[in-house]
Amino acid sequence: MTRSGPGDRDVVQSVVDLATDPGVASGPVTLLPYPAAQHAGTFKEAFTEETGLAFTPAAFRAWRLGLLDSAHAMLVVRTELSESGAYEVAYNVHAGPRLPVFFAVHASCPIRTTLLQDLAPLVDARYHSFTRAGELAGPLHSFLVAARRRGRSA
């Protein structure tokens, strides 16, 4: 989020809206960490509003990793380069819960980092490029249904 702007937030929000659409999600979905997408100018204030804590890197990191530890799946919407996002993915894969990951990769920002490509041998990782959120409806539906099934059997 530290490099994102309002346009990125709007793209992310369109994917969030799709993921929480009952027709796509096939049931209730709670997306963390915020009820709405944020960007570089809003995420620190949103953190403080959500947690009641002053923003510090340590507090933010502990909160975000705690959310991952309590989640059933991970949705990564890539519109910009994000070291924080890469850190969270690495935590999930190598130190955390090994959640299934859905990468919604905007066509303007393909994943070029080799270490984020082809994570499928390590976790259930699905990669989908898009220009409009609606293009993700089918793949996201399949992912959410599979994640819900996996969550019930865990």
Rank of each mutant, 00 (worst) to 15 (best):
A58C: 11
R149F: 13
G7A: 14
L32H: 07
F102L: 08
A95P: 07
Q38L: 12
L144C: 06
P35D: 14
G5A: 09
P110A: 09
D17M: 05
T56F: 08
G7Q: 14
S26K: 14
S82N: 03
T2E: 15
L31N: 01
A146Y: 08
G7E: 14
F143G: 00
T42Q: 09
F47A: 03
P28Y: 09
A146D: 08
P57R: 13
K44A: 14
N92A: 04
A137R: 01
Q117R: 09
R3T: 13
S4H: 06
V93C: 05
L144R: 05
Y127R: 03
E80K: 04
V123G: 02
A107F: 03
G27D: 04
G52M: 06
A147R: 03
L68T: 06
R112W: 15
A73L: 12
A59R: 08
S70Q: 14
L18V: 02
P97C: 10
A19K: 00
L116F: 01
V105D: 01
E88H: 02
E80T: 05
T2C: 15
L140M: 04
L116N: 00
H39W: 10
A137L: 02
A25V: 07
P33Y: 03
D21H: 07
A36K: 13
K44C: 12
R98F: 12
D69Y: 11
T42E: 07
L31G: 01
A73N: 10
H72C: 08
G138A: 12
V105S: 01
V123Y: 04
D17S: 08
V77H: 00
P22N: 11
L115W: 13
A90W: 07
R152I: 12
W63I: 08
G66L: 07
M1P: 04
T113E: 11
L144A: 05
P97S: 12
A58L: 14
E83V: 10
S70G: 14
A71S: 06
E88W: 01
R9P: 05
L122K: 11
W63L: 11
E80V: 03
S4C: 13
L68Y: 05
L53S: 13
R149V: 15
Y91I: 06
P121I: 10
S26D: 15
A154Y: 13
N92W: 02
H141M: 07
I111M: 05
V93F: 02
F43P: 00
Y127I: 02
T131C: 07
G85K: 01
G85A: 03
Q13C: 06
F130H: 00
R61Q: 11
G52R: 02
V15H: 00
A62Y: 14
T79C: 01
F103E: 02
A104V: 03
R61S: 09
L67D: 14
D10Y: 11
L119G: 03
N92G: 04
D10S: 10
L140A: 02
L115N: 13
G5S: 08
F55Y: 13
R3C: 09
P28F: 11
V76W: 01
D10G: 09
F102S: 02
A25N: 09
L65W: 09
P97K: 12
